[in-house]
Design a binder for these strands. Sequence first.
DNA 1: TTGTAAGCGTTATCAT
DNA 2: ATGATAACGCTTACAA
Lengths: 347, 347
Amino acid sequence: MAGKSLTTLRTIAEKLGVSTSTVSRVLNGKSRQCRISPQTTRAVLETAERLNFRPSHLARSLRLRKTQTFGLLIPDISNPFFAQIARSVETAARERDYSILLADTRESTEAEIAAVRLLSDRQVDGLIILPVGQSGDHLRALADEDLAAVIVDRDLPDLALPCVTSDNFGGAYEAVGYLLDRGHRRIACLQGLPDTRPNEQRVRGWRQAMLGRGVTPDPQLVLGDRYDTQSGYERTLMLLDAAPDVTALFALSNLIALGAVRALAERGRRIPQDISLVCFDDQPWLAHMNPPITTVDQQNVRMGQIAVELLLDRLAGRPLRDHRILLPTRFIERQSVRTLNRERVKA
Amino acid sequence: MAGKSLTTLRTIAEKLGVSTSTVSRVLNGKSRQCRISPQTTRAVLETAERLNFRPSHLARSLRLRKTQTFGLLIPDISNPFFAQIARSVETAARERDYSILLADTRESTEAEIAAVRLLSDRQVDGLIILPVGQSGDHLRALADEDLAAVIVDRDLPDLALPCVTSDNFGGAYEAVGYLLDRGHRRIACLQGLPDTRPNEQRVRGWRQAMLGRGVTPDPQLVLGDRYDTQSGYERTLMLLDAAPDVTALFALSNLIALGAVRALAERGRRIPQDISLVCFDDQPWLAHMNPPITTVDQQNVRMGQIAVELLLDRLAGRPLRDHRILLPTRFIERQSVRTLNRERVKA
DNA sequence: TTGTAAGCGTTATCAT
DNA sequence: ATGATAACGCTTACAA
């Protein structure tokens, strides 16, 4: 029953017999600049404190046409990979005095469109977008509009928006190179969502690494259609039948790898003795599997930070449309890969 | 260079030679109620459409003293358990036309206090709080204040705020009962953060289940101090030395279980042949471990939905302070528990 | 050194 | 059936 105190500039002004402008100026630290007398300044400060004055963010936003808020569009916040990015975005934003309005787009373009509208109506100062799918048509308008936006993780072809992603190609290239160095030649690629940039780039990395060592990549060895465990499980099972000569698996996500692990266990194939495994997207539990799984780690925390920086740069006037940042991945060697002996290699 | 269209009520009003009030009324569907002529109505609607009018959420919020926004305070959004809750909160909120302002409190009470202030300054209509630690002192004021709030996952003792949590006691009781039914007597409890409610309740469930079957719980068998993998790993190692007669492990989080799995593997103890394992907090990958791990699943999605419902109820005037909702857990039987034979039991 | 007044874009209360 | 007007709480020229 306390009833919110509702102290406004006016409350203070009236109490002190000064104008709201004066109070506003003092509270915004403009006493110096506006040559407000020390007495007044002190009185205002004290009263504000005493009445527990809290400026209305709303009113200020309306007046200043600036909300100190970014909209964050994420395909699935319950996915740890995205959640980690969300966290670093939130942290980086808050350090710069921005809040985050969250929108989970549930991997639906329709929801994404709605979210952009909603957030734009709420006059966020900028949008941080992890786009759904690969069609950026509905986002294209943003580049022309007055609303600042940056793209994260999945860059869309020819979209004139700043963007930060992992070096998916490089990461895959390195991982597959590692396998090749250890004598593997028949390396299957368990892919995720085809037709998304990251997937496309990783598959390309796989192919180029093979070609680079004079190994002809077998298109039959690229299979899978989702990033989840089920897909990894099913495809691995299929693969073991269809291509028993495969000695290594390159899984394009940790969940796919998990599915593969299970399939291999069911078929009695040991890792790494019988078959080797490397996957994309490190997660803490991968280090605790039996055996610990070798992975390609992405700098998702850094990715979130950079997204915020890009947005702030853009807002500060530095016009960096078309800016694209590629973050190197980090290869983490654990114990899921076997070095093949000469005979096996030559066979 | 398009320049934001910036259509306001006035733009439309002037274009049509009517007042902004009329435009506002029409656009709010009050034509009927305010007996606005069909012509005017149509004209307004058309012009609004043509000029792509988007009402300023900000202005409306200021005027209505209602932002259609909830603040969500989360200890660590990158933790999948919390992230899942966040997702369901966001979804449920959006279905009711509310947006979510996200605040990651990084398990810091200080950050939590700051976040409450910030969100309150932004005049959110309500707060959904997954509290840090167990001290609710700083939240106590909320109960008195005019700001609606609900507590999720970790209920705080004697805090007059509506609250929804898992039945941590019941879940633990059931899991340990399951182990007891299968002949286990020496059951270790690998706990998480001591002094948090969920942990406390789960340990209590472990104890009561034992007592209920006439087994004296050995306090030595409760060990651990964090919810993470490292803690589970270390304690399991210690345990194997200190209490080699333990036949089952009850881990209070999936990450703790993961640490245990690793420790067991290192020591050559097989699951479930040599030692059985059950853990709290199901996650997809647990089903794909080797063997699949039996778990106590929490209804975190439901938890988020209920949180939103509680908040809406509260806002709708139904005064439900002190309301506490306990969600049953779900026991998921997989293959990490062995049924002990008579001899072993009697030994 | 400070006050006045206009305005940010709405909506609600009177009028007419 | 519609319009003026006054808020909502803040900032900022422009005055004084």
